[in-house]
């Protein structure tokens, strides 16, 4: 009896311990705030507008997910003075973008850097997060030139000083591509020299539009100092391809029916009506072959 009592007590004690272990982490989790992570990217767009992209996430690895409806404050600094750039709200993926017009100049420090501070204050379940980036302004130009029947593409990287002079920037890696229907087709890389110039020979077999126009894209990707810069320009260096004519050729909404269709309809109709006429001719013969008619004919012949 005592033995059973002991076993029962031991089981109760075990259950109590297990219960405590299971309940402890749940309570602990409820009180522990999730870490958040803030990323900020600077990009100079094709039309020289600037873009700041914000991504706010929580979790890690496969469990990473965006934090939606979070308020992000963007600040910049004019010498020591704090300037509020914007306050953004993240979307369902935890993303928010700020577009800044080309004519707006960011405040810069003595070295020419622009500093951006992004901050998220957090909430009851998510911790606050901050991110600071700094970048310099840079301009990118594309020019096209034919040298002895060779298509030469020249890229220039420079910055403009306070009096409007172009100061070349060297050692910048630039990707070259052409815009296709869904994305950019990258072709080659080049690096600018001490004059801020990078040249490359452009291929002759890139398909263009109906008159050979292609859209060439130059891209500096996530440079430590200058961020991401895109520039594009059109040139008549592609192989002309008439896409519209090809798709129109297959369709039936054009002004003229395809030849195969006209021939098919003609054959079917002529075939059907020819047989119909054959059948009708046989009916006419029935009347002609009537014994009464034949007798009359014989009589008239006699």
């Amino acid at each position: 009896m005592i033995r059973y009592k002991n076993i029962l007590l031991q089981l109760l004690a075990l259950l109590l311990i297990v219960g405590l272990i299971l309940s402890f982490p749940i309570d602990a989790n409820a009180q522990k705030k999730a870490k958040s992570r803030l990323k900020v990217y600077y990009e100079k767009l094709e039309n020289s507008d600037k873009k700041l992209s914000i991504i706010l996430t929580q979790g890690s690895g496969k469990k990473i997910k965006g934090i939606k409806d979070a308020a992000i404050l963007l600040l910049t600094y004019n010498l020591d003075e704090e300037v509020e750039l914007a306050s953004l709200t993240t979307d369902a993926n935890g993303e928010a973008d700020l577009y800044i017009q080309a004519d707006y100049s960011f405040p810069q420090d003595e070295e020419g850097f622009t500093v951006i501070n992004a901050s998220y204050i957090g909430n009851d379940s998510i911790k606050s997060a901050k991110k600071r980036i700094k970048f310099k302004d840079l301009d990118l130009d594309i020019s096209f030139e034919m040298v002895d029947s060779v298509k030469v593409l020249t890229l220039s990287t420079f910055k403009i000083d306070s009096v409007g002079n172009k100061i070349p920037i060297e050692d910048i890696e630039i990707n070259i591509g052409v815009k296709r229907l869904f994305s950019t087709l990258f072709l080659e890389k080049t690096e600018t020299n001490e004059n801020g110039k990078g040249t490359l020979e452009f291929p002759n077999d890139i398909p263009g539009d109906s008159i050979g126009i292609i859209n060439v894209v130059a891209l500096i990707t996530d440079d430590d100092t200058y961020g991401t810069i895109t520039k594009s320009a059109t040139v008549n260096w592609g192989v002309p391809v008439d896409y519209f004519e090809k798709s129109n050729g297959r369709s039936l909404f054009g002004d003229e029916a395809p030849l195969w269709m006209i021939i098919s309809v003609f054959i079917i109709l002529v075939g059907a009506w020819y047989h119909f006429v054959l059948a009708i001719l046989r009916l006419i013969k029935i009347k002609k072959l009537s014994p009464n008619r034949l007798k009359n004919m014989d009589a008239s012949t006699e």
């Binding site: 059907a272 047989h275 054959l278 009708i280 046989r282 009537s290 008619r293």
Partner: peptide
Amino acid sequence: ALDYQGTELQKKQLYAAHDVMAAI
């Protein structure tokens, strides 16, 4: 009735016409 008297010649014509129409 097209003066149909059921002679062999008439039958032949009618059946042929009939077959052609059915086939088409």
